[in-house]
């Protein structure tokens, strides 16, 4: 087989500069109305993407479609994961609500059900998973460990609630919550999805949204 170019060694890795200020451009800065009413940092000010279009009938149907086929990401950490799987299996079936395919890849998932205790070592990978999920995405904190640290409130290695690292939409209490409780939480999430209500989204650097050519003044 012909190799057109010789393989070269990859360049030496450069460690990231963790002290540098992180500048994240966002489109709220261009909006005069927002600036005038001092709403630039308001969670519901600014246009951040598709979710903020004024809802019309077609969007209502789109919301229904989204709500009725929320695909969860398999992120079972601990005991609540077993109850989550029990919710997904035959006796309490969330396939009735369209949530059977637990996606292994975050790129294909809509909702992250954090089921189980989040420890400080696992917080990094979990936030990476959250960042890799494409919008629109929601987060459900299942169980008391993810709501507030739960029974591990004084522990040295448990994150006291997953909302310290990511925005949460629905909290489902219980240790572990019964499958019926998780389904109730999913019903609340359906309401949120249909009403386009949710938590403040972390600002994400989306990069240039379109190609900007030299001398472009648009």
């Amino acid at each position: 087989m012909a190799i057109d170019r010789p393989t070269t060694n990859l360049p030496a890795p450069i460690p990231p500069n963790r002290n540098a200020p992180i500048i994240i451009p966002d489109s709220a800065g261009d909006d005069d109305l927002l600036r005038q009413f001092d709403m630039e940092e308001h969670p519901q000010g600014g246009f951040h993407g598709l979710l903020e279009v004024i809802p019309t009938k077609a969007d209502y149907i789109l919301d229904l479609i989204r709500a009725n086929s929320l695909w969860p990401l398999l992120s079972g950490l601990s005991c609540c994961a077993i109850e989550m799987i029990s919710t997904a299996t035959s006796v309490n079936d969330i396939d009735r609500f369209g949530m059977f395919p637990f996606r292994a890849s975050p790129r294909q998932a809509d909702v992250l059900i954090v089921a189980g205790t989040l420890t400080t070592k696992m917080a990094g990978p979990l936030v990476r998973l959250w960042e890799q999920m494409p919008e629109p995405k929601w987060c459900v904190a299942m169980g008391t460990c993810t709501t507030s640290g739960g029974r591990f409130k004084r522990s040295y290695s448990v994150v006291q609630g997953v909302d310290r690292v990511m925005p949460v939409d629905v909290y489902v209490p219980g240790c572990p919550p019964r499958p019926e409780g998780l389904i109730h939480g999913m019903m609340k999430l359906h309401e949120l999805v249909k009403e386009r209500r949710g938590q403040w989204r972390t600002y994400v650097d989306r990069g240039p949204q379109r190609t900007r050519w030299e001398g472009d003044v648009r």
Binding site: G116, M122, S155, V158
Partner: peptide, 14 residues
Amino acid sequence: LGYLHRGIEKLCEN
């Protein structure tokens, strides 16, 4: 390992 280490032994001492 250690992604689920919750410090149960230390919590039990109290």
